[in-house]
Amino acid sequence: MAAPALGVDIGGTAIKIGRVAADGTLSDARQVPTPRDPEVLADLIVAEAAATPAEAIGVVSPGIVDEQQGVVVFSANLGWRDLPLRQLLSARLAAPVVTGHDVRAGALAESRWGAGEPDLLFLPLGTGLASALITGGRIRGTGWAGEIGQILVPDPDGTGRVPLERICAAGALARRYAAATGTTDTSGGARAVFARAAAGDRSAQQVLDSAIETLADLLAATAGLLGPVPLVLGGGLAEAGDALLDPLRAALAARLPVDAMPPLRRARLGQWAGCLGAAALAMTPGGSP
């Protein structure tokens, strides 16, 4: 059985850190603000690793990540380009360090300790939108793989094509509702849009319907390529539960033959999926599940 590992999930505003046992048990979990300067960030991770010793360390980040080279090719949220993150950390850490992509790591954690499926497509619907594929318990793809949020799709407003995440991500719903109603208040986020739709607000319902229809178009095509691989939805939007899953399931059923219909589930690990996944990478021989 693998020894506990330290998982470090670098986010745009906070870093999630915790010790993870081989059965997925998380302990010593905490969050610290994310420094933008890579050197400062590396020093911070070293200090956190010293506070929670572990035999191996996994560090994941958002953006376009080349896992084989240990390089963050581009991360808009962090302002990084061609950052050799693994090299930067290995020069400072005594324990072995593995680096990876936050969504792909989260998918691995869901496969092992959350949804419990050896095959799944993980879709965290948060501020942005990405995906990750697991088959046979292994991560598939690197670099641009899974960046479905950047696919250009028809804008429901008829203004051409826009990135998918501008329609379907949690962060997009509040902005689109505000635009539809002539307001600037997006403080309630996606949760408020779902609440308004449930109360009979037609504008809110139209925003949700267009997001679900657009997402279903893409996921139906994905099922046509992969077969009925379970779809595991995470992120802030998945907190809506059946208010999201039921209409999305119906939209997929309208697009797919019964035998091609993928199971649709809510992720179980929540905001700590990336941290758990980072540790899972560190526990894996060679760091490549």
Rank of each mutant, 00 (worst) to 15 (best):
G188C: 04
R202H: 10
G200T: 03
A223S: 13
L208C: 06
E213K: 00
A220R: 08
A174G: 08
G189H: 05
E213P: 03
Q206D: 15
G189Q: 05
S210W: 00
A199I: 00
A211R: 08
T214E: 07
G171L: 10
V193F: 10
D217V: 08
A221D: 15
G171W: 02
D201T: 02
A195V: 05
G182T: 00
G188M: 09
A197W: 00
L215A: 11
D185F: 04
R191I: 14
A170E: 08
D185S: 00
A199R: 02
A169Q: 14
A190N: 13
T184H: 15
L219G: 05
T214H: 07
L218E: 03
Y177G: 03
A174W: 05
T181V: 13
G189Y: 04
I212P: 03
S210Q: 13
Y177F: 13
R191V: 12
R191M: 08
T184C: 05
A178I: 06
S187P: 03
T222L: 11
D209P: 08
Y177V: 04
A169N: 11
A216T: 04
D185I: 06
T183P: 00
A220E: 15
T183D: 13
R202S: 13
A170F: 09
Q206H: 15
E213M: 06
S187E: 02
D209C: 14
L218V: 08
G171C: 13
D217H: 11
S210K: 01
A190F: 11
A198F: 01
A204H: 02
A211K: 10
T181A: 04
V193T: 09
A197F: 03
A223I: 13
A199C: 04
C168I: 11
Q205W: 12
D201E: 12
A204F: 00
I212D: 07
C168V: 14
A170Q: 12
L219C: 05
D201I: 01
R202G: 03
T222P: 04
Q206S: 15
Q205F: 06
G171Y: 07
V193Y: 08
A192I: 14
A223F: 09
A180Q: 02
F194G: 01
T181F: 04
A190Q: 11
S203C: 11
A180E: 06
S187T: 12
R176N: 07
A198I: 01
A198D: 09
T222E: 10
A198P: 01
A195F: 06
A172K: 11
R196N: 05
A221I: 09
D209W: 10
A174T: 07
A180C: 01
D217S: 08
I212W: 10
A204W: 02
A178M: 06
R176F: 09
D185N: 03
D217W: 14
F194S: 04
S203L: 14
E213C: 07
A170L: 08
D201P: 10
